[in-house]
């Protein structure tokens, strides 16, 4: 950015504005080159090689990318991840808005409720998954206790491939306190006069929510969708901890949950790189994930023009 090609022939004004911006943006440029661009470039180059991470890398052209097409685990992990994102993002959005509304209730001790709702999102994920497994126990867990008491079926959350991803979605909701805080703040930013005049016009609570709150929340909803998409596509730690069998007196003989239903993309990538020491293939997997992420994010951004409102209309 600093070395601007001569052909561009920046005007004097442009050049001086660049100089002004440099002290501000410069740190990012350095950090980007050293900590992001170089590693990406590196990873991209080795995606065309066979490389264990040591010794010589053997160039193999597009073989890694071709192999992906025939690799059932690639498809499985991609499917699992997209399935998870499709479920977790909308659910997370609804829960975060609901929590944000709840945190906005006008009661004296609301600070305590806010802290309680936010608290699980600061638990170390390592400890949280341990606790979560206990809460999801099909016979003795809290969740099934509630469901069975309400007359529902007893669900084998972590043992039935149809439910495992839903379990992780529920786990993710324990961290909804963070996004909820952002929604809370946004709700608090809506001028109260808007509600007062609507109430005078006889609009009920639901109508006020649909016609005032929701449209004004759309910019935050967009932010949350993108954030949820990115975090969802890169989901790793819960699956990593939930699926580590063997330790303790643990568990089923799964690789990543029953029917590999918790084999998420980044988990597979991580295993490929650090357990199977196949850096070339792992890098190819990473490149594909990057492309998928960008395409999905662009799609959301595209549609956002039609539903995100920056002002009340």
């Amino acid at each position: 950015m600093i070395a601007v090609p001569r052909r561009l022939r920046l005007g004097k004004k442009d050049r001086s504005s660049l100089l002004v911006a440099l002290p501000f943006v410069g740190p990012w440029v350095i950090g980007f080159l050293a900590f992001t661009a170089y590693p990406i470039y590196y990873s991209f180059t080795i995606s065309f090689t066979r490389y264990s991470g040591f010794g010589e890398a053997t160039p193999i052209g597009l073989t890694n990318y071709q192999h992906m097409y025939a690799d059932p685990l690639f498809w499985k992990s991609m499917y699992n991840t997209l399935y998870y994102v499709a479920l977790a993002v909308p659910v997370g959005l609804v829960i975060a808005i609901a929590l944000g509304l709840a945190m906005n209730q006008r009661v004296r001790e609301v600070a305590i409720y806010r802290a309680a709702i936010y608290a699980p999102s600061i638990l170390p994920v390592y400890a949280l998954t341990f606790i979560f497994i206990v809460l999801l126990n099909p016979r003795f867990g809290f969740l099934n206790y509630v469901i069975v008491t309400l007359g529902g079926p007893s669900i084998n959350w972590l043992g039935d491939p149809g439910w495992t991803k839903i379990s992780v979605v529920i786990l993710a909701q324990l961290g909804a306190g963070g996004p909820a805080l952002i929604f809370l703040a946004a709700i608090r930013g809506i001028p109260s006069e808007l509600y007062e005049s609507a109430a005078l016009d006889g609009a009920g609570a639901l109508r006020r929510f649909v016609y005032i709150t929701l449209p004004l929340l759309t910019p935050v909803i967009l932010y949350d969708l993108i954030l949820g998409l990115i975090l969802g596509l890169q989901i790793f730690t819960p699956a990593y901890v939930l699926t580590q069998g063997g330790a303790g007196a643990g568990a089923g003989q799964y690789v990543a949950g029953p029917d590999n239903s918790l084999m998420f993309y980044v988990l597979y990538l991580y295993k490929t790189a650090f357990q199977f020491t196949d850096m070339g293939y792992a890098s190819a997997l990473a490149t594909v994930l990057f492309l998928v992420s960008v395409v999905l994010a662009l799609a959301i951004m595209r549609t956002s023009k039609s539903w995100v409102h920056y002002e009340v209309t």
């Binding site: 099909p138 003795f140 084998n156 043992g159 901890v241 643990g250 568990a251 089923g252």
Partner: peptide, 16 residues
Amino acid sequence: QTWVSSFLPPNNPPQQ
């Protein structure tokens, strides 16, 4: 499998 998930969940402590 329900028995397995109930009595041998992942990270089960040895006491259990």
